[in-house]
Lab assay of single mutants.
Amino acid sequence: VGDQVLEIVPSNEEQIKNLLQLEAQEHLQLDFWKSPTTPGETAHVRVPFVNVQAVKVFLESQGIAYSIMIED
């Protein structure tokens, strides 16, 4: 199991704000291929294997929908 690319769908401005804060966490080494800008629009982010669980827990705790787009 390696890195994953998640497709994330924020449903409101609050969730977009939370994702932008997540993007700013440099220690997570997230690679946003497509940043969140509009509710209902997908964002794509590559998550290093060591941080996959932490990111998924965060998304679930914020009620942000996501799916695994690419499993490496």
Rank of each mutant, 00 (worst) to 15 (best):
F32N: 02
K34Q: 08
L59P: 00
Y66T: 01
P39H: 03
K34I: 12
T42V: 14
A24P: 03
A65M: 11
A65I: 10
E14F: 06
Q4W: 15
N18F: 14
P36K: 02
V55Y: 02
E7G: 05
K17W: 10
T37P: 07
Q4Y: 15
V45M: 09
H27S: 11
E7F: 09
L19C: 03
T38N: 07
T42L: 06
K17A: 10
D72A: 12
Q29N: 13
E41S: 07
V55T: 03
L20P: 01
F58W: 14
I16R: 04
S11Q: 10
P10F: 13
F32T: 02
W33A: 09
P39Y: 04
K34D: 14
Q15A: 04
V50T: 09
Y66N: 01
F32A: 02
E23N: 10
N12C: 04
K34P: 07
E13F: 11
I68G: 03
V52H: 04
V45F: 03
T38S: 08
Q25Y: 09
I70N: 09
P36L: 05
V1R: 14
L59Q: 00
S11T: 12
Y66D: 00
V52G: 03
T37A: 06
H27C: 10
K56M: 13
V52S: 05
D31N: 12
P48C: 05
N18K: 14
T37L: 12
F58C: 03
V50A: 13
I70L: 11
A24E: 09
Q53P: 10
H44F: 15
E7A: 14
P10C: 12
V5S: 05
S67W: 08
K34N: 08
E14D: 09
Q4R: 06
V5E: 05
L28H: 03
E26D: 10
S67T: 13
Q53A: 12
G2W: 12
L19G: 00
Q29D: 09
E23C: 13
E13Q: 10
G40Y: 07
S61V: 07
V47E: 00
A24F: 08
Y66R: 01
G40A: 03
M69P: 04
Q29K: 14
Y66C: 02
Q29G: 13
E71S: 10
L22V: 03
L19R: 00
E14V: 06
S67D: 05
A65T: 10
M69K: 07
P39C: 04
S61I: 06
V52Q: 05
Q4S: 07
V5C: 15
I16N: 01
A24W: 13
V57W: 13
T37Q: 07
N18V: 15
F58Q: 03
E7K: 10
V45K: 00
T42G: 05
L20S: 05
P36D: 03
E23F: 14
M69H: 11
V45H: 00
A65D: 08
S61L: 12
N51I: 06
L59E: 00
F58M: 05
L30W: 03
M69Y: 12
I64D: 00
G63I: 02
G2V: 09
Q4L: 14
A24R: 11
A54K: 10
L19H: 00
T42A: 12
F32G: 02
P10N: 01
S67Y: 08
V50S: 11
V5T: 08
I68F: 05
N12F: 02
N18S: 14
P36Q: 02
I64A: 01
G63Y: 04
E71K: 08
S35V: 09
V45N: 01
E14W: 07
Q15T: 02
A43F: 13
P10V: 06
V5R: 04
I8E: 00
E60P: 00
I64S: 00
Q4I: 15
A54W: 13
I70M: 09
F32C: 03
R46F: 11
Q15N: 02
D72M: 14
A65E: 10
I8Q: 00
F58A: 04
I64N: 00
L19V: 05
S67N: 08
H27R: 05
R46Y: 11
V55G: 00
S35M: 14
F58I: 08
E7T: 12
E60R: 04
S67K: 13
S11V: 14
S11E: 13
L19K: 00
L30D: 01
P48F: 03
Q15W: 01
T37Y: 06
T42R: 11
I70E: 10
R46M: 06
V50R: 07
E41Y: 06
R46G: 03
F58Y: 10
E13C: 13
V55K: 00
E71V: 06
V1S: 13
D3A: 13
L30Y: 02
R46H: 13
P36R: 02
P39T: 04
V9N: 08
L28K: 03
H27D: 11
P48W: 03
N51E: 07
V9K: 07
E7S: 14
Q25I: 09
D3E: 09
V50K: 12
T42N: 05
L59M: 03
K17Y: 11
A54N: 05
S61M: 11
R46Q: 06
L30E: 01
T42M: 06
E14H: 09
H44W: 15
R46A: 07
I16S: 03
Q53R: 07
Q4P: 07
E13A: 10
T37S: 12
E7M: 13
Q15Y: 01
Q62D: 02
Q29R: 09
E13S: 07
L6P: 01
W33G: 05
K56D: 01
I68C: 05
G2T: 10
S61R: 08
I68M: 06
D31C: 15
A43H: 07
E60D: 10
L28N: 03
H27L: 09
D31R: 12
T38I: 13
I16H: 03
H27I: 08
V50F: 09
V47I: 10
V1I: 07
E7R: 14
F32S: 02
G2L: 09
T38D: 06
W33M: 14
P48Y: 03
K17N: 09
I70D: 12
S35E: 07
V55N: 00
V5A: 04
E26K: 15
P10S: 02
R46V: 06
L30R: 01
L22N: 02
Q29V: 08
M69T: 06
A65F: 14
V57T: 13
P10W: 04
A24L: 11
Q29M: 10
E14C: 07
F49Y: 11
V55C: 02
Q15K: 02
T37N: 06
I16T: 04
G63D: 07
E13K: 08
V45L: 15
A65W: 14
Q15L: 01
L59Y: 01
K34E: 11
L20A: 07
V57H: 13
L6E: 00
L30N: 01
M69R: 05
P48M: 04
H44K: 11
Q62L: 12
I16M: 06
W33L: 15
G63Q: 07
P36H: 02
Q4F: 14
A54I: 12
F49N: 11
H44M: 15
P10M: 04
Q21M: 12
Q25N: 14
G2E: 10
A54H: 09
Q21C: 11
H44E: 08
G40K: 04
E23Q: 13
T42S: 13
E26C: 14
D3S: 13
I16P: 00
L22W: 10
V50M: 12
I70S: 13
Q53Y: 08
V52K: 03
F32R: 02
Q25D: 12
D72T: 09
E7P: 00
V1E: 13
N18Y: 14
V5G: 03
E23A: 15
Q62W: 14
P10H: 01
V55D: 00
L28E: 02
V47C: 03
L6D: 00
